[in-house]
Simulated scan of single mutants.
Amino acid sequence: MKAVYTAAPGAVEVREVPTPTVGPEDVLVRMRACGICGTDLGFVAAGGMPYLGQPIALGHEPAGEVVDVGARVTDISVGDHVVVNPMSAPSGIIGNGGALGALRELLVIENARVGRDLAIIPESLPFWLAALNEPMAVAKHLVNRGAPLSSESAVVFGAGPIGLGAAIWLKLAGVSHVVVVDVVRARLDKAIDVGADAVIDSSNEDVAARLMELHGEAANAIGMPRPATDLYLDAAGAPSVLQTAIASAKWGARLVMAGVHKQPELIDTGQMMIAELTFSSSMGYPTEIFEVTADLIAHQERFAKLVSHRIDFGDVESAIELAGTPGATDKVVITFGP
């Protein structure tokens, strides 16, 4: 069977690897879809995971069909459609330095337990859309870390899949007004399409001034006028995002960072103090991986708008190159078979 690994920096390798064997408590899943994540692209650019110093198996956004089950498995059947929790694999996180990646034809789920390692999904949910389960869990955890209230206003920086997912979750949670900030017009249009109330093009608009127009005026602890925005979510990872949020924060505002900042950032702690700004971070999905599944099923039409490209596994190398081209795609999902 074929599996995708990082190779030299900037390249991937499709390898022939042994077909996995199924232990008594394992499940074998034929991959039917797997999303390409920005993390994958980072591993490709580095030629693997930097601290491992060696190539790694790629892919951590899987959806597929069960084709074999171990003798002791009782609650999963051949033919079940499933989404997978890549963080629960005993051999290491799937596609993030563990022994296995999901960009392969067959994936063994070791010691498989429903609700921990995988969730069974209805056949009405297309596999390419089910592959959003993992990134939407990331987006949901980002929103959960911000603990939004329905009476509040929020701004999301970055209109990639995580930022757009966060905007969807904020609106599904009933947040009164959600703004999305980006510099790519097509992505801002997509933000409106998935339910954001307004967008800001930070390449030609003053973000703080526009937020004040949209959310009203408040103040920090020493009475300086600030937008009445309650919650700032960073899904961009750009230095300007933290600087803008901190300088704009009213008294008691909250800032949650999920965007990956590749270099240490200088932040203005004085501005944070006079806003009593709560600054936290978000990574992964401690509980959300299958909490999001029912909403993904219920709101398929909205989440489907995040996927811009579906590309067959046979063209995986060109798909990864396309996904890494700035501004060329939203979400790229690799599909396997019809």
Score class of each variant (00 low, 15 high):
G216H: 10
A57N: 08
A238C: 05
V12W: 03
S203T: 11
G115P: 11
L170Y: 03
G53E: 10
V316N: 04
Q243F: 01
D330A: 13
A258H: 05
A7N: 13
H215N: 14
L106W: 10
I274N: 10
P135W: 03
A154H: 07
V12D: 07
K190N: 14
E276P: 00
G42K: 15
G10T: 08
L296T: 07
H299N: 14
L58E: 06
S282Q: 01
G337T: 04
C37E: 05
T21V: 14
A238G: 06
P126Q: 02
V179H: 03
G158Y: 04
G324L: 09
M273G: 14
S124I: 01
E61S: 06
P227Y: 09
V83T: 12
A7R: 02
A249V: 07
A304R: 08
L129H: 10
I274A: 00
L58Y: 11
R30V: 03
A228D: 12
M49F: 14
I297F: 13
S248R: 04
F127T: 00
V73Y: 09
G115M: 10
Y5V: 10
N96W: 00
W128V: 01
L255A: 10
G174Y: 10
A208I: 00
V12F: 06
A89D: 15
G59I: 05
V199S: 12
G101H: 12
T335V: 15
W169Y: 05
A258Q: 08
P239C: 06
D230K: 00
K171P: 04
S281G: 15
G59P: 06
T269A: 13
I36E: 06
D234A: 04
T229P: 07
E265Q: 15
Y51V: 14
A209P: 03
P90Q: 06
H60I: 09
R185P: 14
D193L: 13
D315P: 00
G270E: 13
I222K: 07
G98I: 08
S240R: 14
E134A: 01
D75Q: 13
A253K: 04
G324E: 08
R226W: 02
S203P: 09
I274M: 14
L170R: 04
V12C: 09
R116N: 11
A3W: 05
N220F: 04
K171S: 02
G115K: 11
A247M: 00
D26H: 09
G35S: 06
L132W: 02
A253F: 05
A319W: 03
V155R: 03
A3M: 11
M136P: 01
I192Y: 05
V178M: 07
V181G: 07
A8M: 06
A45C: 01
V14L: 15
V78F: 05
R187C: 09
P50L: 08
T229R: 07
S281E: 03
I192N: 01
I320P: 05
E123M: 00
G98C: 04
I94L: 14
G327S: 12
E205F: 09
S282F: 02
R145G: 02
V4L: 13
R15C: 06
G42H: 15
A102P: 08
A154P: 11
G38K: 09
A209E: 15
L41Y: 10
G101R: 11
E205C: 09
D295Q: 15
H60V: 12
D230W: 00
N144T: 13
D206C: 08
V292G: 08
D315F: 05
C37P: 04
K305Y: 05
G165S: 06
L129F: 01
G337C: 02
G35Q: 06
A294I: 02
L322G: 08
